[in-house]
Nucleic acid binder design. Structure first.
Length: 563
RNA sequence: CGGGGCGUAGCGCAGCCUGGUAGCGCACUUGCUUCGGGAGCAAGGGGUCGUUGGUUCAAAUCCAAUCGCCCCGACCA
């Protein structure tokens, strides 16, 4: 492609609204433009990147027997009412009415449509298994779109669905997807972790997420370097390291004006790990006392999984139930239901005395009060791995893919049944699997860039080769450039030909910014000596070859880069 | 939805406090020079100052409302 005939609006300066590296570079390199919050136009270069990513996805999906289909963006409400999600999902679903006042919504995912289709077209165990996928726009009215293309309200998603006869079949389909996903992310040049994840309201028996490490990510994962434990911190368990416990006797001690763990520890000159943080929460059932170690954070989601929705108690509620201000409450002597974190099973601690200005020292959980035990703390870096006890590491990541075992939740409600060998009607066992192509592109940029710009992984670069004649007014140089451009195209090398009459500096800066894997520079000095320069963007390696060898050298360099 | 910030030319910004009818850099157009890492000189084009209402002789500037965008948090099927 000739630059002069392309829309490649590069920017010299960072756009004011862009924070994340990938966002800045995608705008500066002319890949995308923002139309509204969380709504983007993909310009030609951005589109080519998506096309490349999607091509990889299609190959790997087809390889595991996936069949591509396309489902509607616009859905009738009835379908979502049947599965209960019409009411279960709140503001995140775009809803509208058609001219006949019929309620509709814009698809945020496609389990309902798949179930509808399966209910009509699958009848016998002989029809199973099936794998159907699409690469389609999804719409979600995100509360807070952010980080450029990483969290948007309209986005492309490859979603696939497997239909099986039973759990064993689902397990097989699930594993195939897991392997296909690994190949896809590897081919796209991403570093990633496969982690256990929270199945959430998708329901079902198991889920994994594919996480690409990046500062721009919104999730965190806990990883063990010794064994293979890896999980989203949403559900990661860990073994906090126990402190040295002093040989305290049980006694009440005055702690005037010390209402926070920090103040109490400063006053008593002790490690926060020797205290218990007591939090009064309110559930639908009533008040609940939650206990974690003083240096730990309560993981509200873990707690919510045990007792349902919780909210912090108001000040007057704390006074009413425990007779003291928040800073002095504790589990001893209360009749409130109490949940204590597992890490409190051993040791002696300082806890609030339920008396303003006093704490109790030497409290032994399980002896001086009887809680229900559960894992309700937030895993931290340095905590022990729940499997092997080596140190856990917490890493910030971008979720680029997820896989869920759905089971029969949707097939039952949508009556997607089949007849087994015995002639009995059975619900189809489903799985659901997503990948965000734009997130792959953004994660690739987050992971592969430098001060100058993007460094595209070869498989998803918008073009393979950047042909850069230094001076378009030099006729000989231009002739050579045109000839090389023609040759490269004839050899099917994807080449972006910078035929602009710009000064060399401008062209070089843009070439670095766009980050195509290989740059071929035709300059006057090199021309005099009869050599053209090839430069690998990633390594900075340079090669000088006569014009006649450019094409073959370029092809061999590119094929090496692809490995 | 809570907290914070910002809306002035295509992009990045100043001007606002202390009202007097809009400016800088880049980009763009034309000419000359220059040509291996974001050129120089000269001459140009381009803005209802987010919107609406109010105060005032006079509003980018003060007041009110409203819309939009970004960041932190909550949410995320």
């Amino acid at each position: 492609m000739r630059w002069t005939r392309s829309l490649i609006p590069t920017l010299k300066e960072d756009p004011a609204e862009a924070e994340a590296v990938s966002h800045r570079l995608m705008v500066r390199a002319g890949l995308v433009r923002q139309l509204a919050a969380g709504i983007y136009v993909y310009l030609p270069l951005g589109q080519r990147v998506l096309d490349k990513v999607n091509a990889v996805i299609r190959e790997e999906m087809n390889r595991i027997g996936g069949q591509e289909i396309t489902m509607p963006v616009l859905h009738p409400a009835e379908l979502w009412q049947q599965t209960g999600r019409w009411s279960a999902i709140g503001d995140e679903m775009f809803r509208l009415k058609d001219r006949g006042k019929r309620e509709m919504c814009l698809g945020m995912t496609h389990e309902e449509v798949i179930g509808w289709l399966a209910a009509r077209e699958v009848r016998s165990y002989r029809d199973l298994p099936q794998t159907w996928y699409q690469i389609q726009v999804k719409l979600r009215d995100e509360a807070r779109p952010k980080s450029g293309v990483l969290r948007t309200r309209e986005f492309l998603m490859k979603d696939s669905y497997t239909l099986d006869r039973d759990e064993a079949g689902l397990e097989k389909s699930y594993q195939l997807h897991k392997e296909a996903y690994c190949r896809i992310f590897e081919r796209c040049g991403l570093a990633f972790h496969v982690v256990e994840s929270d199945p959430g309201i998708m329901g079902g028996a198991g889920a994994h997420e594919f996480m690409a490490p990046s500062e721009a990510g919104e999730d965190e994962v806990a990883l063990c370097d010794r064994c293979d434990y890896s999980a989203n911190v949403e559900l990661a368990s860990s073994r906090p390291r126990p402190p040295e416990f002093p040989d305290w006797n049980l006694e009440e001690i005055p702690t005037p004006n010390a209402g926070t763990i920090e103040q109490v520890c400063a006053l008593l000159r002790i490690d926060p790990a020797l205290t218990i943080k007591s939090l009064l929460l309110v559930t639908k059932e009533g008040p609940l006392l939650a206990l974690v170690r003083g240096d730990q954070q309560l993981h509200e989601k873990k707690l919510a999984m045990l007792v349902g929705e919780v909210r912090p108690a108001h000040r007057d509620e704390i006074l009413m139930h425990l007779g003291a201000e928040a800073g002095s409450i504790g589990p001893v002597g209360t009749t409130l239901p109490t949940i204590a974190d597992e890490s409190l099973r051993t040791g002696r601690y300082v806890v609030g005395a339920n008396k303003d200005g006093f704490h109790v020292r030497g409290v032994v959980p399980g002896t001086h009060f009887q809680p229900r035990w559960a894992d309700i703390h937030h895993a931290r870096s340095g905590d022990g791995c729940p499997r092997c006890d080596a140190d856990l590491r917490i890493e910030r990541v971008i979720e680029v893919g997820n896989i869920f075992k759905l089971g029969t939740k949707y097939s039952v409600s949508l009556k997607a049944m089949y007849l087994n060998e015995a002639g009995e009607e059975r619900p189809i066992v489903m799985g659901s699997y997503g990948i965000g192509p734009a997130r792959i592109a953004a994660a690739a940029i987050e992971q592969h860039h430098d001060q100058q710009g993007i460094i595209w992984p070869e498989a998803i670069a918008p073009y393979q080769l950047h042909l850069l004649p230094v001076n378009m007014r030099d006729e000989k140089m231009m002739e050579l450039a045109e000839a090389l451009y023609a040759q490269l195209q004839a050899e099917r090398v994807e080449v972006l030909y910078d035929d602009r009459a710009e000064r060399p500096g401008v062209k070089f800066k843009d070439a670095d910014l766009l980050g195509l894997p290989l740059r071929v520079t035709i300059g006057s000095h090199a021309l005099k000596e009869g050599v053209v320069e090839l430069k690998v963007r990633r390594t900075g390696e340079e090669f000088r070859v006569p014009p006649s060898e450019v094409v073959s050298k370029a092809k061999s360099l590119l094929s090496n880069l692809l490995k």
